[in-house]
């Protein structure tokens, strides 16, 4: 687009874009640079006059295997949560986009995005009430079933996964819904007229054509879940130590900002590496 611009046009473009650039600089670039700077310090300047520059914080990640273990645990969690979000969210989006018409669709859609409207802490504590021993879920199950059931989901990895899936499911549903909505119904009719079963239509037409949306949703879920700390801490209890909670501890409990910053940037690098490795797949999905 840049080729044909006159200087006047370029000036106007710059003027129009400058608020966005300013915003990016102030809200993203400066804090990130500061964090990157912190990650190479021995101590925070305001706390210790004898602060210096070091690579020690990054070395700490390599020498102490706990961090790598926790990072692996967090990545596993993120893959699990993303997987469940896809398994639950895509069929939801499919039904919303292709089976339900009219007003009931709007009502259902509202219910899908409702988790977005509630405060996340409230949401997580509600799950705690539902999941704890003798909680809402356990009582309901016991009321339904004749024999005694002990669920004891609270303070388990399962509880963390449930809470995270509930929080992030709307992303997958929304992006998949939009992608599926864009698939012309005539394509489905055409496939049916050629004798295709529902499964064939899903596999060869709907899924390939909505894959960009589904993957966008998956990325939107995966990235924040790797670094999540609130759900693991509240719903996971003793099991809830993850990479994200360790970073949080560095900032709010241990006050070791340089280590927290270094761990954050290692996480950022790993996430970028994973997305880069997946990008051939993502790109193919665009065509």
């Amino acid at each position: 687009m840049a080729d044909l611009e006159t200087p006047a046009e370029r000036r106007r473009l710059f003027t129009l874009l400058s608020p966005a650039y300013l915003w990016l600089t102030v809200a993203v670039f400066l804090p990130l640079s500061a964090m990157l700077f912190f990650s190479f310090l021995t101590d925070m300047p305001q706390d210790a006059p004898d602060w210096g520059v070091t690579l020690g914080n990054y070395a700490e990640f390599l020498t102490n295997p706990t961090y790598a273990t926790l990072l692996r645990k967090s990545l596993t969690l993120a893959f699990t949560v993303t997987g469940f979000c896809i398994l639950i969210g895509y069929p939801c989006a499919l039904v919303l986009a292709k089976s339900i018409k009219g007003r009931s669709r709007e009502a259902l859609f509202l219910m899908v995005i409702l988790p977005f409207w509630s405060n996340s802490l409230v949401r997580i504590f509600s799950w705690a009430i539902v999941l704890r021993g003798n909680g809402v879920l356990e009582r309901a199950v016991n009321w339904l079933l004749p024999f005694d059931v002990r669920l004891n989901l609270m303070f388990t990895t399962d509880a963390v996964v449930i809470g995270l899936v509930h929080s992030y499911l709307p992303y997958v549903i929304l992006t998949s819904y939009l992608a599926l909505q864009a698939v012309d119904d005539d394509l489905i009719d055409a496939a049916r007229s050629m004798g295709a079963s529902k499964l064939t239509i899903l596999r060869r037409i709907l899924l390939p054509l909505s894959l960009p949306g589904l993957l966008a949703g998956a990325v939107l879920v995966f990235v924040p879940v790797v670094g999540s700390f609130m759900e693991p801490r509240i719903l996971g209890g003793r099991m809830g130590t993850y990479y994200g909670t360790v970073i949080e501890d560095q900032f709010v409990a241990v006050y070791n900002w340089p280590l927290g910053a270094a761990l954050s940037f290692i996480l950022l690098a790993v996430v970028i590496a994973i997305l880069a490795a997946a990008s051939p797949v993502l790109k193919r999905a665009q065509t």
Partner: peptide, 29 residues
């Protein structure tokens, strides 16, 4: 149902599958 009627149908906007080549479109059925 339409899947089992063994008909050929052409749609107003052609309804070609954008994710497939011409040959794959034709070969779908």
């Amino acid at each position: 149902p339409v899947e089992k009627r063994d008909i050929g149908m052409m749609f107003q906007n052609y309804a070609l599958f954008p994710n497939m080549t011409v040959a794959d479109n034709v070969g779908f059925g």
